[in-house]
């Protein structure tokens, strides 16, 4: 009986170890990730990290330069993120994109067919377009949401009960240049909320998500494409 119990225990430990190894393999920390996207596909690269990290996103010419000199100049960078979704559409041509995470990150890549995705949008489905979770430092901090479309659904959620607003560029400049206070703009702006904010983009204009916190705060945002947004071009 004891032998049987020991054997059973060893078997359980072995199975648990294997499953963890498989899980670790799927979610292993990587410092560089090459993502190849075949023509007519779109890749959604999901990046996660336990602590806020910076990511540098590069196409081949920028990556070659990085390999030669170590310089990330010319790369698109995102700062202090713990979760990020980056779409790579390959409508005309195969695409190769490199992700450099100097502190390491986990990558999960989902491929979809561009035409299927457009069909689903036109049938009325709402599809995740972009998203991020980032640490905003204490005081006033912000992030720019760009390449918006009219009717794009935007959802923002904070880890703390703090004021959130989405500003257009000239209001944002008035704030950052000290022409108006956070409170003055918050009281007069339309796209605002406490702890969370959900709205449809009014037009194509860039929006700045601006928050004010005492200790720093995690902000998560997602944008969802829909049929109406698709009619404006995706």
């Amino acid at each position: 009986m004891n032998k049987l119990l020991t054997l059973f225990t060893v078997l359980i430990i072995f199975l648990l170890t294997c499953s963890r190894a498989i899980a670790d393999n799927q979610n292993s920390i990587e410092y560089e990730k090459k993502v190849f996207v075949e023509r007519e596909k779109v890749a959604f690269v999901e990046i996660t990290s336990d602590k806020p990290i910076d990511i540098f996103i590069m196409y081949t010419p920028q990556y070659n330069s990085y390999c030669k000199s170590g310089s990330t100049e010319g790369a698109f960078d995102v700062k202090s993120i713990t979760w990020y979704i980056y779409p790579i559409p390959a409508m005309f041509d195969d695409q190769t994109v490199f992700f450099i995470a100097k502190d390491g990150a986990r990558f999960n890549i989902t491929y979809e067919n561009v035409k299927d995705r457009i069909d689903r949008l036109f049938k009325g489905e709402a599809l995740l377009r972009s998203g991020a979770s980032a640490f905003f430092k204490k005081g006033i901090d912000s992030i720019r949401l760009t390449q918006n479309l009219p009717e794009l659904q935007i959802e923002i959620e904070a880890s703390e009960d703090i004021p959130i607003m989405a500003l257009k560029v000239m209001d944002y400049m008035a704030l950052t240049r000290g022409l108006k206070s956070f409170e003055e703009i918050y009281n007069n702006t339309v796209l605002k909320g406490k702890k969370s904010l959900s709205f449809r983009a009014p037009d194509f204009d860039d929006l700045y998500i601006v928050v004010k916190s005492e200790k720093g705060v995690n902000i998560k945002y997602k944008t969802w494409a829909n049929r109406e947004a698709a009619n404006s071009g995706c």
């Binding site: 996103i57 196409y59 010419p61 698109f76 390959a90 005309f92 041509d93 695409q95 760009t146 860039d206």
Partner: peptide
């Protein structure tokens, strides 16, 4: 560029080359 890559996006790699 105000954008994350040259436009239109599907031409990004060709422009960078």
């Amino acid at each position: 560029d105000a954008n994350d890559k040259p436009q239109p996006p599907p031409l990004a790699q060709k422009w960078l080359t």
